[in-house]
Design a protein around this nucleic acid. Sequence first.
DNA 1: GAGCTATGTAGAC
DNA 2: TCTACCTAGCTCT
Length: 289
Amino acid sequence: MPEGHSLHRLARTITRTFGGAPVGASSPQGRFASGAARLDGRVLTGAQAWGKHLFVEVEDEVLHVHLGLYGTWVRSRRPEPEPWGAVRLRLTGQLWYADLRGPTACDLVGPAGREEILARLGPDPLRRRPDVDAFVRRVAASRAPVGALLMDQSVLAGVGNVYRAEVLFRAGVSPFAPGRTLGEDTVRALWDDLVVLMRDGVRRGRIVTLETDDVALLADLDHDRPAPDDPDLDGGEDTAARRRLRRSTGVYVYRREGRPCARCATPVRAEDFHGRRLYWCPGCQRGPR
DNA sequence: GAGCTATGTAGAC
DNA sequence: TCTACCTAGCTCT
C-alpha cells in the first residue's frame, strides 16, 4: 500500500533479497522490454526509497519505480510460475523472484535522472538527516491549507492521504487552516509525529495511528460492529471480515466518514478536496470550517 | 461474479 | 481538468 512507509519497506526487501548478486530481468507485459534487457544478468547493488519513489541500482543503471495508486511488487519463492496479468518487470534471483504490476513509473533514469527527481522532492521523515527546517519554513510561510501542503511532495515526501488525515487529527489541526496560521511549533510537532507514525508503519507494514487506549474506546463506539478479537466472529479464522475489522481499528478518521470520533463522538466528516478525499473530525480539529 | 473504490502521479489537452 | 495506469479488496446481488 503505497505511502512512504511501504516504499521504504520495499527498498529494504529488494536489497536483502537481490542485493550483491546478478539478477534476471524481463518484462512479460512488454512495456519495459528494452529496459529489462539492459538490466538482465547484471548485479543489483541495492535499492533506496525517497518519499514514494523507489530507486534500484543495477551496476551503473538506476531503475526508478513509482507504484502510483495501485502498483504492486510481490516477492515469492522460486521456481516462478508463468506470469499472470500485466507484469511490467520480473526480477529473478537465486531463491526468489519479484513481479512488478501496474506502476505509474518504471524507467531507467541513470544517476542524473535520479538527482532530478530528488530535486523535486521535499524532506522525507523516514530518511536520515532530513531538512526539517525546510519543511517548517515552507508550511509556516504558506497561505495554502495545511491539508494540501502535507500532500505536496515538494513540501514533504512520502505522506499520502492516510497519514495526512491522521496526523492532522492527532494534532487537533483543521486541514483547512492555512499553513501560515499554525505557528512553527505546531508545524514542527506535525513533523515529529509523522516520524513516529511512519517509522511504526515501516515496522508493522501497515498504518496504525491509534493510541493503545483508544483502540478499546473506538471498538466501544463502533458498537454495531463486533470487536476484532470477538471469538464468535467467523470461528476465529483470519477471514476477510476479520482483516477488515482489524484495519478499521487502526486509524482515527481515514475512511470513517459518518462514524463517531474516538475522542469526542462527533461524526467524522469527509469531502473532496484538491482531487482527493479528505477526512477530519469537526469536533477535535479546530480552525476554519 | 459484477461493480465500485482507492494509501498517486504523469501527461495530454 | 481529465485520463491512463489496469491491481486488489470490498460491497452488493
